[in-house]
Amino acid sequence: MNSEISSGVLLAKDQLQKILDNLSVGFITSTEGNKIASILPPFKKLGVLIDLEDIEEAEAKIPIWKNVNTKTTQSQYYSCIQCRRQLPTPHLLDLHITEQHDLYFAASVERGDKPHYTCYIEECPLKFFQPADRKDHCIKVHKFPANYRFDQGKAPNKAKSCTKKATNAMDVDKDVNMAADLSNEKLPYIKAFSFGHPTQRTFNSRKDKALLDVRAMKEALDDMD
């Protein structure tokens, strides 16, 4: 048929009908299509040239004492209003808020009637009963690294370990404990006073005895009284 269609004469209806009768109805598949040479030129891999001035300008904006580019960080990141954790995508922030700060979610998980932990990939519809199951799924199915940086499961584990420690602790009178907690809350944790020279350049051999923070100072003053 290829030889028939190359000279450029208009086909009569009968001739066309004859050619069509020889053809069968069917799909054109991509394997057939690939026989023809590629229409587009081959893709050329390209890198990117960075301007050093851009880097210097950006670094000049960073406050030396803070070492964080607050302007860009705040505007380009999705940050949790409660714990200030910064996440790169709206989906990850959504997961973080739900899993870490939503009491209703925590209650639903505790009830355990259906899976609640959504996959890190927004497009994946699967949900899991445990964060560990989700992690396994992400590693096995989506080929995520085992130490995925935006893993939400890490924070609750820490919290759990804290609560475990608390349960293993010695029984203490609750009122006393409460009072201690309250006094801890009232006093801000300030590591030390400094007058423009934050780094100590002396030997600190009596670390345990030094008055390292305000609380320690207050206790020392109370003892003196």
């Binding site: 950006a58 960073i62 580019n69 860009t72 960080t73 990141y77 940086r149």
Partner: peptide
């Protein structure tokens, strides 16, 4: 590590 850090620049 820098790519996944918290400093956008």
């Amino acid at each position: 590590k820098e790519f996944t850090g918290t400093q956008m620049q």
